[in-house]
C-alpha cells in the first residue's frame, strides 16, 4: 500500500519548508516548530502503512502535524494550569491582580502575522511547487535565506551567470503564478 506513493527519503526536501511555515504561525517558536516537524516525519514513517493513498503526501503529513501541534498545546496548557496554582498560593502581596495577567498569554503573539500574510505564504509555496526543484532550492537560498551568490555557486557548482539566469527564470515564473493566484 504505502510503497505506491510515499517517498520518505524525499520528505525533508519536498515538505520541510512548507510544514515549517505552517507550524511557525501556530506555535511562534522556531525551535518548537523544528522539533514538531522532526516528530511529524518520524510519526509518518512509523505509520506509513496506514497511508491509503487517497490524499497527497503533503496533506497526509499536515494531518499528522496538526495532531502534533494540538498535543504540544495540551502539554503546555497542563503546565500553565500548574503555574496558576503556584502563583495563587505564593504571592499574597500581589492579591487583587488578575491571575490571567500572569499566565502565559498566547492571544497576541501572532497578531502581527496577519491572515493576509499567511495566505500569501501559502500562495508563494504553491507557486514554488511549480518550479523545477533545483531552481526552487536555489531561489529560496538566495531570496529567503540570503545566501551569498558565491556560496550558492560553490554549493551547486554553477557560475554566477548560471545563477542569475536561474534566479531570473524563477522570479518570472513566480510573478506570473502569484499574479494568477494571489492578485486576482
Amino acid at each position: 500500500m504505502g510503497e505506491v506513493t510515499l517517498h520518505p527519503e524525499k520528505w525533508v526536501d519536498r515538505y520541510a519548508d512548507y510544514l515549517f511555515n505552517y507550524t511557525i504561525v501556530r506555535v511562534n517558536d522556531r525551535i518548537v516548530a523544528e522539533d514538531l516537524i522532526s516528530e511529524t516525519f518520524l510519526a509518518g514513517l512509523k505509520s506509513k502503512d496506514n497511508f491509503k493513498g487517497n490524499a497527497s503526501e503533503r496533506t497526509w503529513l499536515i494531518s499528522i502535524l496538526k495532531r502534533k501541534i494540538i498535543d504540544y498545546y495540551r502539554k503546555k496548557n497542563t503546565q500553565k494550569a500548574q503555574a496558576e496554582v503556584h502563583i495563587t498560593y505564593s504571592d499574597d502581596e500581589m492579591e487583587g491582580d488578575w491571575l490571567e495577567e500572569r499566565v502565559e498569554d498566547f492571544s497576541d503573539q501572532t497578531a502581527e502575522d496577519t491572515l493576509e500574510n499567511k495566505e500569501l505564504r501559502l500562495a508563494i509555496f504553491e507557486c514554488l511547487d511549480t518550479l523545477d526543484e533545483r531552481h526552487a532550492d536555489i531561489f529560496k537560498l538566495k531570496t529567503i535565506q540570503n545566501y551569498d551568490t558565491e556560496a550558492i555557486c560553490n554549493e551547486y557548482n554553477i557560475t554566477p551567470s548560471n545563477l542569475w539566469v536561474i534566479i531570473h527564470r524563477a522570479r518570472k515564473a513566480l510573478m506570473t503564478c502569484l499574479k494568477k493566484h494571489w492578485l486576482e
Binding site: E9, W11, L42, K140
Partner: peptide, 21 residues
C-alpha cells in the same frame, strides 16, 4: 517575499532531519 515573512529551515537542520529519517 519580505512582507510574507516566509521562513525556511536551515540547511543544517534539514540535513539533521534527513539523517534522523
Amino acid at each position: 517575499m519580505n512582507s510574507s515573512a516566509i521562513a525556511t529551515l536551515s540547511r543544517e537542520k534539514k540535513e539533521a532531519m534527513k539523517q534522523q529519517l
